[in-house]
């Protein structure tokens, strides 16, 4: 069976790492007698996609636990959408394997429990919003008596209740995105893929979508969020992976990703000659007037840093630790690479 506890406690295994994966046959067996609480929501091993000479995704191994919001970050063209498409069976991997909700990718029955909001998409412009949702109720094979309630709840959730009878052709891009989210939430999915879900929305719409995403987590739904809006990931995600040129360059919880890369600002009222000796061991530093900034300090080493300055005869009036934000860390990761 799945090494679920290991996968969930260990969290994401970055590209190149080897999680304690199961044999494909074991995963397949879970579809016959499902143990949904045991298997991770998503588990990939060496997932690889090549388009002729271009490698879109390089040997991706990740594990996403049930009920978490997992952020997939990366610049445009990093391969984020390709990963989602492979997990949904829209694109066939060149190598590797993936399990979604304990079943092999593309399993028809499992697709009932998956919602998907694509990045670039359109609904049938000649249908009304309610008809689009009704079509998806049919495709999901939901019990007919539940359709109307599901449709009105979905429209209500995404703020389109008053536009239920309007044709999609007249919808703005943002409204289509809202409708797309409503469609993705139909039928109470266990896993939702959101590919740049707020790219066409105004600030109010973004706030609304973030609230919906948090509500999903509260209901135990796993959310796989592709985004290049780092503030969005910072606000929503339990864990993230940063993808660049098809490869994961960093992964973990936000505190793991940012916590070990603090910045410290120090105010020194007395600084004897040579006090900076040894400062470089803590990180890159610069001085502006009374203030000295040391970048990339390990939070556990801040006390040692202060001790070093004091031992050298310095007088420290203020110590201000500052955490790096995701955007700074993101850019740093891409530059490092």
């Amino acid at each position: 069976m799945w090494q679920a506890s290991s996968a969930e406690s260990d969290g994401l295994v970055a590209a190149g790492g080897v999680p304690q994966a199961t044999a494909p046959g074991e995963g397949a067996a879970t579809t016959g007698s499902p143990r949904p609480s045991v298997s991770p929501a998503i588990h990939t091993l060496g997932l690889h996609k090549r388009y002729r000479r271009t490698v879109a995704v390089k040997s991706l191994s990740v594990s996403v636990g049930r009920g978490e919001i997992f952020g997939f970050l990366g610049p445009n063209g990093a391969g984020k959408t390709t990963v989602i498409k492979m997990l949904l069976g829209l694109v066939k991997p060149t190598a590797g394997e993936a399990m979604v909700l304990g079943a092999p990718v593309g399993d028809r029955r499992t697709r009932r429990r998956i919602g998907y909001l694509p990045e670039m998409f359109r609904f049938q412009p000649w249908l009304t919003a309610a008809e689009v949702l009704r079509l998806h109720c049919r495709l999901l094979e939901l019990p007919r008596p539940s359709w109307e309630q599901s449709i009105s709840e979905s429209l209500e959730t995404v703020g389109l209740a008053e536009r239920a009878g309007d044709r999609v052709a007249g919808f703005s891009k943002g409204m289509q995105q809202r409708l797309g989210l409503g469609v993705a939430l139909l039928g109470g999915p266990a896993l939702v893929f959101l590919d740049e879900p707020t790219s066409a929305l105004d600030p109010v719409g973004r706030h609304h979508v973030r609230q919906i995403t948090r509500d999903l987590r509260e209901r135990g739904v796993t959310v796989f969020l592709n985004t290049h809006l780092l503030a969005e990931a910072e606000q929503l995600c339990d864990r993230v992976a940063v993808l660049d040129k098809g490869a994961v360059v960093a992964s973990g919880s936000l505190s793991e990703l940012l916590g070990r890369h603090s910045r410290v600002r120090l105010k020194l009222s007395a600084a004897p000659a040579g006090w900076t000796t040894g400062l470089s061991a803590f990180g890159a530093w610069r001085t502006e007037g009374e203030w000295t900034t040391v970048e990339g300090v390990d939070p556990d080493a801040i006390a040692d840093l202060v001790n070093l300055i004091v031992a050298g005869g310095g007088r420290v009036e203020a110590v201000i630790p500052e955490h790096q934000n995701l955007e700074e860390r993101f850019l740093e990761l891409l530059q490092e690479k």
């Binding site: 949904l88 069976g89 829209l90 028809r108 029955r109 697709r111 009932r112 998956i114 998907y116 694509p118 670039m120 998409f121 359109r122 609904f123 049938q124 998806h136 495709l139 999901l140 094979e141 797309g180 469609v183």
Partner: peptide, 14 residues
């Protein structure tokens, strides 16, 4: 081309 089919074929339909 328009992406209409993406939301259809990811449903439980062959």
């Amino acid at each position: 081309e328009s992406g209409v089919l993406m939301t259809v074929v990811t449903r439980p339909i062959r």
